[in-house]
């Protein structure tokens, strides 16, 4: 046995309890989503079931208004991601390229906003939205998500912008480019990957947010996915667990796949001086 193989076996042995605990609920999610309703509560509980009920998904879609919640989630996440990125690019560019007084102060201000969690401010936010007449509007979520994500997006973009040598822009100025041409022809093409990665993480953050959506959205028609699924579970005598699990599958699996594909960028971001 090569040393590397030996090491791999040891590592997998050490990691296996954690992997099992992480994967177990997903297994339970799939087997619940696919089993017939009357096999949900059998005693003693068992993993096996009689048939794959794919119709559960179709039923769930109708009964839980999944489509509506999906659209709400998509609208809120997409809009807030686009706005957050559009507002963050100039700020990140300024932090990465200019020397100006108040830069350190602004950085610390961003850090502070990153630390402030929605839950501590939720009451104040709710009252703010009442004043703005935005309660029950998905746009209240858009604005708050943009505000709460901005520290992350600016910081992430900035750490990538820093890896694009300033000399490239300088070279283009000397080659005869205006600041605008330089931005469009040199800087932005090189920054696209960073912007895409940052945008996807922001999207996932907004997609998964719960507390604000639970508080600021009062009517069932405007629920986002997490709140919609939560409402199927909370305060009910009869929880249709197979529907809940089917909804959870649809709401989590695409995001999980995208995230798994992108997680190395996040680690690279951290290595780039993210924690700084």
């Amino acid at each position: 046995m090569t040393p590397k193989l030996k090491k791999s076996l040891l590592y997998w042995l050490l990691l296996s309890p954690l992997c099992v605990v992480i994967l177990l609920p997903f297994g339970i999610m799939f087997v619940t989503a696919l089993r017939p309703r009357d096999e949900l509560f059998v005693y003693p509980p068992t993993w096996t079931f009689s048939e794959f009920r794919w119709e559960n998904f179709a039923e769930m879609w109708v009964k839980t208004n999944f489509g509506g919640a999906l659209l709400n989630s998509l609208y809120v996440s997409l809009t807030s991601t686009i706005i957050a990125i559009v507002l963050s690019i100039p700020a990140a560019y300024a932090l990465s390229r200019y020397r100006f007084s108040g830069k350190g102060l602004y950085r610390n201000f961003l850090l502070m906003t990153q630390m402030m969690s929605p839950i501590v401010l939720v009451l104040g936010l709710f009252r703010l939205m009442v004043h703005l007449n935005l309660v029950n509007s998905l746009n209240s979520l858009v604005v708050t998500y943009v505000a709460f994500n901005m520290a992350f997006t600016i910081w992430m973009l900035q750490s990538y912008f820093n890896t694009i040598p300033r000399e490239l822009e300088e070279a283009s100025w000397i080659d005869g480019a205006t600041s605008f041409t330089s931005l469009v022809k040199i800087f932005l093409p090189l920054a696209v990957p960073a912007m895409v990665v940052t945008a996807i993480f922001t999207f996932i953050n907004s997609w998964n947010e719960f507390v604000l959506a639970l508080t600021l959205i009062r009517s069932q028609n405007d629920y986002t996915l997490p709140v919609q699924i939560f409402s199927q579970v909370a305060g009910r005598y009869q929880v249709e667990w197979h529907h809940v699990m089917a909804a959870t599958v649809l709401a989590t699996v695409p995001v999980a796949i995208v995230f798994s594909w992108l997680q190395r960028y996040l680690i690279r971001g951290m290595a780039l001086g993210a924690v700084k």
């Binding site: 040598p165 000399e167 490239l168 300088e170 070279a171 283009s172 000397i174 040199i186 093409p189 090189l190």
Partner: peptide
């Protein structure tokens, strides 16, 4: 101008 790190446009 010729830069120390050449500043070639990578794309």
């Amino acid at each position: 101008m010729v830069f120390q790190n050449y500043a070639l446009y990578p794309h």
